[in-house]
Design a binder for these strands. Sequence first.
DNA 1: TCCGGAAATGAATCATGATTCATTGTTCGA
DNA 2: TCGAACAATGAATCATGATTCATTTCCGGA
Lengths: 210, 210
Amino acid sequence: MAHKNLTRKQREFLRHRKEIMQTALSLFSQKGFANVSMQEIALKSEFAVGTLYKFFSTKEALYSEVFKEKVFELHSILVKALNIPGNEIKKMKTFIEKKIQWFTENMDYVRLYVTEIFGVGYIDKEEFSQLQEKNHVELVDEICRLFNSGIKKKIFKQIDPQILAISLNGLSNGLLFEMIENRDFKQIDPNSVLTIFLQSICLKGTDEVV
Amino acid sequence: MAHKNLTRKQREFLRHRKEIMQTALSLFSQKGFANVSMQEIALKSEFAVGTLYKFFSTKEALYSEVFKEKVFELHSILVKALNIPGNEIKKMKTFIEKKIQWFTENMDYVRLYVTEIFGVGYIDKEEFSQLQEKNHVELVDEICRLFNSGIKKKIFKQIDPQILAISLNGLSNGLLFEMIENRDFKQIDPNSVLTIFLQSICLKGTDEVV
DNA sequence: TCCGGAAATGAATCATGATTCATTGTTCGA
DNA sequence: TCGAACAATGAATCATGATTCATTTCCGGA
């Protein structure tokens, strides 16, 4: 990104801002929006309360920034995964793997994410659901494209790609759900579950194709 | 349940209690724990604030009661669904249908449910996760039993029932996820998704079996 | 009808925590 | 070195809403 031609002051400003956001993310993730006070964020980030307000006009604004940054991060990882070089099955596997990896690494954050998505969140509803909608549609489209091309190549059976996209999304979300709900889930390899799904939509066995 | 041999006073007490809980459920579901005040619950339920405290020692306690009642309701519906008369596929379908039906009818509440499960909730963590753990294990066991008996009867392929149970749970949860995240999801018939899953684990086509 | 105690009431108390702003510290060009 | 402009500080303010409790209302028996 544009990082040159900024004065030292400006760079410092940005660095401080980022520091605050990181602290806030970690606290919000651990304890949820309502259970974190500005005092606490100030303390941990080693700024004064008043200073936080120099960067973010309200607690909600801070939260919103922090939150949206992560949404973008995840979305871009997923889209990227669907576009790696390789055949359709490779792409699907990468998609799932990346998703699971990200969720695993950001499990604390995922809680916030779910809370917001499910509508009892703290971010301005209009703004967020619009963003969310946009991402969601984009992703489902991308997955549909994947299935379509797989069907054309006779790798997949001829099933409505829309339904497949949602099944895939649903299955992977469900797994994540399971992982989070049930901490000792790790004994189970997500791949084995994915395999079941693949078996049902692939014309041939998956191993020979990958 | 035991409802006779109570004085009128006692019955009235119970009725009032239930009324408060219903109001609270509806408010909490719509706006989440943090965004509902005791004043508001009092107003809507047509009792005075002080009265609420005659029934529930704190706001958390009220919430907890309301919340747990619903958890029991869902759990008992699911267990019942797995034990209707019929073959294994019939049971699975009923299970999914009942689950989807309940989630659909209680969509507002589901938000609370998810929030709690994902750990940023307001109910005493220890107590709740113990209850949740118990229910979850019970359910997975029940589903495993189902798959085992299906495998024995050669209706299902020979796949680790534990993995199947989690896949099924994951898939149906994921669908619900999708339904809630994306309001216009209703265009898609959950059965079509279930069918994909069934195809991959059934030895024969499902239609002939049901 | 009258009385004692149970039940209900809601204004007042109190705790928490977001937000403000007068004060203090820092930077840097003259 | 000096001081104007900018940045940081955190104690004080203020709003919200949970909880309490002194008072009132209700009820059943004498």
